[in-house]
Amino acid sequence: MTAVSLRGVTKQYGTVHALDNISLDIASGELLALLGPSGCGKTTLLRSVAGLVHPDSGAIEIGGRDVSGVATRERPIGMVFQSYALFPNMTVRENIAFPLSVRRRPEAEIRRRVDDLLDLVRLVPQADRYPNEISGGQAQRCALGRALAPAPDVLLLDEPLSALDALVRGRLRDEIRRVQQLVKTTALYVTHDQSEAMAIADRVAVMNHGRIEQLAVPAELYEEPSTSFAATFVGSRNAVELAVVDGRIALAEAFSVPAPVGAAERAIAFFRPEDVTVAAGPGAKGQPATVELKVYLGATTKMHLAIPVEGGTARLYADLPSRDAASIDQGAEVRIVVDPAHIRAFPVPD
């Protein structure tokens, strides 16, 4: 069942298309992440659903009801802000109770509901503290509790983790996911962090220039990016631009794959560092390369490789298990091979 439905939503600021004819369906109970660089329109999209931004055209339905002319305060939504936006003059408990008390629910019901929510977001010990007396992670959990208080049809999260430090971020991300699955709410989650999006979302919509480039489950997005932007933005990839020769593209002896459809002269090949095989020693096969820099990262070691090609040097990364990399020194001459099955190639627009 569709919980939120967007049809041809468009928003322009001056000459900038913040949202360019966006259509999107979010299934009930689904967590959909909007992923993209800053300025891609993901926040504008979220704020349009909230009614804080008014699209120039298009329709937004929540729970089957067109909300285009509906004020924010009358939409069945909950929202978690990047900066928490907790009311400073209210305690954690009062913040969570706020949406219920402005709706004039009976005191007893409010108390019961808030107690449940405090428990849900694990803030019972902090219930009577003020926002400036709790940590960032606690503040964001409080914001989550407040957003969920009126049992909204859709929960909107605007980069909820970006103001937190790395350690708290991972934990809180899993926390949000746990709570969302527990209360089975539909959620729209904006982030610019691809690993966060992959970790938390049922589906990810990659946005760029106000358009959705790809909408897919995380694994598909990772393995099979459908556009060159999605390939660059998701996962760290090597990108090599190559000339099309006889319908194929090749990086010397490292790989050779058929050119993508539509590529007349040049194409760009993407492959992940872990798919680059590096071998040293006399028996090794493949393209000769030089190890310019070796970076030890614990379980893996990242190698910066330089490959002489006509007209210059191509540079790419390879990730090796550190045990295998131990025998290869910085400066060594090695040979590399890339498995063609893991290469995604896209035409270079002229």
């Binding site: 009614g51 004020a71 305060r73 939504i77 929202m79 009311f87 706020f98 949406p99 402005v102 909107l156």
Partner: peptide, 19 residues
């Protein structure tokens, strides 16, 4: 964003100012 959060929480402008 306090005003926005208040709106999302269904508060009116008056409620925002008062509370």
């Amino acid at each position: 964003d306090w005003w926005e959060a208040a709106q999302v929480a269904s508060a009116t402008r008056l409620q925002f100012w008062r509370r």
